[in-house]
């Protein structure tokens, strides 16, 4: 973690607020432009920054060492793969001790909700493909099967980390199938005319 904290400037005059702030008096205004402000301060503000651990060296031959750093003493096994990890490699996520490789693997599978920074909402994509092309109905001859395909292909893919139902997928499949049925009827009617 960086030693120097990120700046906390006044949004109006961009003068740093933190140096003017003491534990005794909460700032009620910007010290430079006097714009009113409210500070909610928490104990972490007064805590010393914890210095990152460096990993202890292996002292004796009989000690187990880290899988990634053979010179460092093993501290914990990875909860996923069981490899021994030193304090440098060990990452604690949701009370589990994990190694970098398992974190990368879990991230790809969507198992580690607590470190993901974005998700694709395939159900929104499928629904948009089912609905918007109806504005110009001819497009649906192409988009309807694509919407149904996307809905089925990504049915089990990780979706929002917030609670979310399958309703959009179901709607996309329903609308897409209806459009395909309509096109089927059109084609059958045309074929019977000629």
């Amino acid at each position: 973690m960086a030693a120097d904290a990120p700046a906390l400037d006044c949004i109006f005059c961009h003068v740093p607020l933190l140096p003017a702030f003491t534990a005794e008096s909460l700032l009620a205004e910007c010290p430079a432009c006097h714009a009113p402000l409210t500070l909610a301060a928490f104990p972490a503000l007064y805590h010393q920054q914890v210095v990152g651990e460096v990993g202890e060296p292996v002292v004796m031959d009989t000690e187990s060492s880290c899988f990634y750093h053979p010179q460092k003493r093993a501290a914990v096994p990875c909860d996923d793969c069981g490899r021994f990890l030193c304090t440098l490699c060990e990452v604690v996520i949701s009370d589990r001790h994990l190694c970098p490789a398992c974190i990368e693997g879990s991230r790809k599978k969507g198992d580690l909700k607590d470190i993901e920074s974005s998700r694709i909402l395939y159900d929104n994509i499928a629904l948009a493909l089912a609905i918007w092309p109806m504005l110009i109905f001819y497009f649906t001859v192409v988009t309807a099967p694509i919407a149904v395909f996307v809905a089925i292909r990504y049915w089990k893919a990780p979706t929002s980390i917030l609670k979310r139902t399958k309703l959009r997928f179901i709607a996309a499949i329903g609308i897409g199938v209806l459009q395909m049925v309509a096109w089927g009827a059109v084609i059958v009617t045309l074929a019977s005319k000629f």
């Binding site: 009113p36 402000l37 909610a40 928490f42 972490a44």
Partner: peptide, 12 residues
């Protein structure tokens, strides 16, 4: 929660 030092609100 354990990392939050300050929450600052400025009226606009």
């Amino acid at each position: 929660f354990r990392e939050i030092k300050l929450i600052v609100t400025q009226r606009t």
